[in-house]
Amino acid sequence: MSVPLSHVLIVASLMFAMGLGCVVAWRANVIMMLIGIEIMLNAVMLTFVGGSAHWGIADGQLFSLMLMALTSAEVSLALAMVVYLHRRKQTVNTDQFDSMKG
């Protein structure tokens, strides 16, 4: 394939910027914040796979596999916590979870 590496990196960084914007803009909604984190991690995976293909070493693909395992663990724990918090407060609005505020 005759696409330069910089174009892959441009796509990945635009995707990362979108995920960052999603986390910051939807900071009142826990589920949309988690979706933003997913987008950012996928952008990082695209960077790893692009670098791995560019230099012909399998390490980048390996790290994206590790990242996938990390993400599945993180999402299962975070969604369990969302269900737990929703059971307690009946909302996913982060502004309601202020019981530790002094």
Partner: peptide, 22 residues
């Protein structure tokens, strides 16, 4: 980009499992 295994895992784990969990 020459990563068929990662592509399969992306479909199976990300689009198939994590998003369905969401």
């Amino acid at each position: 980009l020459g990563a068929p295994l990662i592509a399969a895992f992306e479909v199976i784990i990300y689009a198939g499992a994590i998003m369905v969990l969401f």
